[in-house]
Simulated scan of single mutants.
Amino acid sequence: MSGPNTDYDPVEVAAVSPAEVEAARDAALAAIAAAADLEQLKAVRTEHAGDRSPLALANREIGALPPQARKEAGQRVGQARGAVNQALAARQVELEAENEARILVEEAVDVTLPTDRDPVGARHPLTTGSELIADIFVAMGWEVAEGPVIEAEWLNFDALNLGPDHPARTMQDTFWTDPADDHLVLRTHTSPVQARTMLTRGVSEGAPIYVVCPGRVFRTDEYDATHSPMFHQVEGLAIDEGISMAHLKGTLDHFASQMFGEGITTRFRPSYFPFTEPSAEVDLVCFVCRGTGLNDAGSDPCRTCRGEGWIEWGGCGIVNPRVLQACGVDSTRYSGFAFGMGIDRTLMFRHGLEDLRTLFEGDVRFTTAFGSEL
C-alpha cells in the first residue's frame, strides 16, 4: 500500500493564490471606498463580503488543499477578509454620520413656527347665528335677555294669557317635570324671558323695555327633517309709550334685510296668538326669486317659495293688555309689540339647508364648513 502524497503545487488552486486573494481584497477595498451612501455600501457588502463573494469562495477552496498548504492559505484569505470587514465597518460609521448630518440640514424643523397638525375648529352656526341676531338688535339699542330653560308653569303659560283651560295650551305639546305638583316645564318658547323682564324691571318714566331673547325651547315634536323636540327661537319685546304696528313692521323689515340682504321686506297676515292682539303671521319676500315666484330662467316656479314669492317666517303682534297687567305694566299708558321666529329655520333659509337634523347631529364636517364666523 502506497503512502500519502506529500508533493503538491499550490498554484494549481488559483482561487487561493496570493495574487488572486490580493486582487479580490483590493477590489473590495476600492468598492468600499467608492460607496457614496448606505445603500451602495449595502450592495458592496453583498458583492465583496457575502456568501458568493470571491474571498468567501476562496475560503471554501482551502479544504481542497493538501494539509501542508492549508495553514498558509488560511492565513492569507483570513487576513484579506478581515481587512475587508474592517473597511466595511469603518465606512459604515462614516456614511451613517454623513447621513445624520444631511438629515439635520435637509429635514430641519423650526419648532417656533405654529403647528397645523391640530385641525382648526369651527363655531356652530346656531351659536354664531344667535350672536349675529343679538348684534343686529344691540346695534338698534336693544338689550339681550336670558332666562332658565326649566320654567314655572305660570310664567310659561298663565302670565302670557294662556290660562289652565285655554285651548292654545293644546297647540304647544309640553315636557312637564316630575313631580307634577312643582308646576315646572321645559319652556315651550322664550316668551317667559319677556315676562321675567317686565316683572323684574317694570316700566317707569324714561325707562322703556327693548329686549331680544334668543334661546333653546322644547316641545314634544317628532324628530324629522323639519321638526325637533329641541330647537331655538328668538323673540323680541318692545314696551314704551305710543308703540304701534308701524314700529313693529319697521323693526322686522330692518331685521329681515340684515339677515337676508337689502331689499328683503316682510308682510303681515292676520292670525291669532293669546299673548298679542292684534296678531299676525310674518312672511319674508323670497330671497331667492326676490318676490317674483319664478326661477332664474323665469319659466318655472321658484323652488324655495314654491312660486308664492313669500316665505313664512314667524309670528308677531301688539302685546295683549292682559299680559302687560299680569306683569305689572300699566296698560293704560304703555303699549308694546312682540315677535318670535325660529333661529334654526332662519339659518336653514339663510344657508339653503334642507334637513333640520344636520344642525344637531354633531358632524364636524358640517360645522367646519361654516368656519369660525358666519
Rank of each mutant, 00 (worst) to 15 (best):
E222S: 13
E241T: 13
V212P: 06
E146N: 12
G352S: 01
G250P: 05
H254Q: 14
F339K: 01
A58K: 02
H232A: 01
T6A: 11
F231E: 09
A369W: 15
L347V: 06
R306D: 04
T368Y: 12
R45D: 10
A280I: 07
E47L: 14
R269I: 07
R187P: 14
E22K: 13
S244V: 08
A80Y: 00
R290V: 07
E312C: 03
R216P: 10
L41M: 06
C316D: 02
D110F: 11
V323G: 00
G78R: 10
V329Y: 08
P274H: 07
T174V: 12
I150Y: 11
V364D: 14
P167M: 00
V211C: 03
N156W: 03
P164W: 07
P167E: 04
D344E: 12
V234I: 15
T128E: 00
V319L: 00
D51P: 14
P164Y: 09
P148F: 14
I311K: 11
G362L: 09
A225I: 07
G250I: 11
M198D: 08
N99W: 14
M341G: 14
R60T: 15
R350Q: 06
E61Y: 08
Q172C: 14
K71I: 13
V44L: 04
L248V: 03
N5C: 10
A139G: 13
V11L: 15
L374T: 00
A297W: 13
E373D: 01
C289Y: 12
A27E: 07
N161M: 04
T200V: 06
G129D: 01
P270Y: 12
A225C: 00
W142V: 04
R187Y: 13
I62F: 14
T332E: 08
D135Y: 07
I32R: 05
F287I: 12
R357S: 00
Y334K: 02
R169V: 05
E100C: 09
V212G: 07
W313Y: 11
H124K: 00
E373T: 09
F255L: 15
T332A: 05
R123E: 08
F370K: 03
L55Y: 00
E354Q: 04
A14Q: 15
W142N: 11
D182Q: 15
L38Q: 13
R290Y: 11
C213I: 10
V319I: 07
E277F: 05
L237E: 04
G291M: 13
L57Y: 05
L160D: 12
T115P: 06
E262Q: 15
Q86Y: 06
A297D: 15
N99Y: 14
T190C: 07
R70F: 13
G309Y: 08
F349E: 07
V193G: 06
P179C: 00
F137C: 08
D51F: 13
T265D: 10
F231L: 09
D158K: 01
C213T: 14
G147A: 12
A207P: 02
